[in-house]
Design a protein around this nucleic acid. Structure first.
Lengths: 204, 204
DNA sequence: TACACTAACATACCACAGTCGGTTACCTTG
DNA sequence: CAAGGTAACCGACTGTGGTATGTTAGTGTA
């Protein structure tokens, strides 16, 4: 991997890319993702479609880029916020609460676009369930810790348990994004967590 | 609502509709949903696009029609199959196992199309999480029964518990449908159910 | 039977994501 | 600094889902 020398050209390219991203996001939030066309974005900033597709390989990718940024939050601020709690299980629960809160802030429209995009037909791989995500890495670390502390059952591996939790919450979020759906995400999340606390704790 | 007299014309219409549906499904299974265009379907049977849209309001609706048929299974054969089990909780668990088995039979490609369609932007309402579905009605009935028998916790309503289970499994199925995903649905379902059995049972 | 009504079907068209073959201008290398 | 390569950008085009506007032919009714 050669060093990415910053020439004038590359700098300009980066700024164009950023400009595309920003105008796209601004239009999305103003008019709603589905109502904004690629041409809208291009026209608004006097750029061509070709330019757009030079930087983003699809309309969805813009959304995904925003979504992926939230993973940064999970392994930094979120981790910090739960650090004070004594028991590992408490940390795990608090962590998942924070995840749902973050998603709530992200908003239904954007999350809907994410779910829609990720399960699309054109895609070969999906980001949302990649084990590389810090969402998983942090989660699994917390689970493993809780297991080591004897607080969680060990007949399921830490990976299994993490998957189980994430997927359950994902189903909740999916439902939350469905058109016509009308419930509070964090509230409904409490129900699930309440069950998990009991169902996952080590037998005694 | 007047009686739907079966004239020659209506009969013919019904047969056309059926023919569209059948050719569509046959093409879907042969080439994959996304590779089949509406024109493909129409050309194959010498019918026009206008005819297609006279019977189906979207390409997705064909998929959904197939999917909705599975609800019939839940309130008939599935119910019958679990009737022999003694405890209500056993019935509930067995029921959810059957649901996952049914989904496995339905197949990933079709389920992917369902998830994709349901969370689409054009839609105003979604079928998949409608409380009218027998998936929910049967599930909630079983939960309520188990609660009455003192086998399940009662600090959550039967509706809450049902939603909780369905949504968790839905997240699992969603992941299962993601491109590149590679796990056995029923097997992974066992993990979740194993946790729910403990987490949902009445405290003693 | 004649006439109005409407369901069944046809066709031209639109919207919009994504593609493709260019053209220009910056950058690297000799 | 000259030449060749390549990244940035252009804009016409395509594919496809869906719509708008007919046209035709069964059907109920007088």
């Amino acid at each position: 991997m050669p060093k990415p020398k910053m020439t004038m050209r590359k700098a300009h390219a980066l700024s164009t890319r950023r400009k595309i991203y920003d105008t796209a996001v601004s239009l999305f939030t103003k008019k709603g993702y589905s109502k904004v066309t690629i041409d809208d974005i291009c026209n608004k900033m006097g750029l061509s479609k070709g330019a757009f597709y030079n930087y983003f390989k699809s309309k969805d990718q813009i959304i995904m880029e925003g979504f992926m940024a939230s993973d940064e939050y999970y392994r930094t601020d979120a981790l910090k916020e739960i650090a004070g709690l004594k028991s590992s299980v408490d940390q795990l629960v608090a962590y998942n609460r924070l995840v749902l809160k973050k998603i709530t802030r992200t908003g239904r429209p954007l999350m809907q676009a994410v779910f829609h995009s990720e399960i699309g037909f054109r895609k070969k791989t999906s980001y949302i369930n990649s084990e590389k995500r810090s969402l998983y890495k942090v989660g699994e670390a917390l689970v493993a810790e809780a297991q080591k502390a004897g607080e969680l059952r060990t007949d399921l591996s830490s990976k299994q348990i993490t998957n189980l939790i994430v997927r359950s919450l994902r189903g909740l979020v999916y439902d939350w994004c469905l058109p016509g759906s009308k419930f509070d995400l964090e509230e409904a999340g409490e129900d699930i967590l309440k069950v998990f606390i009991v169902g996952l704790s080590a037998p005694r």
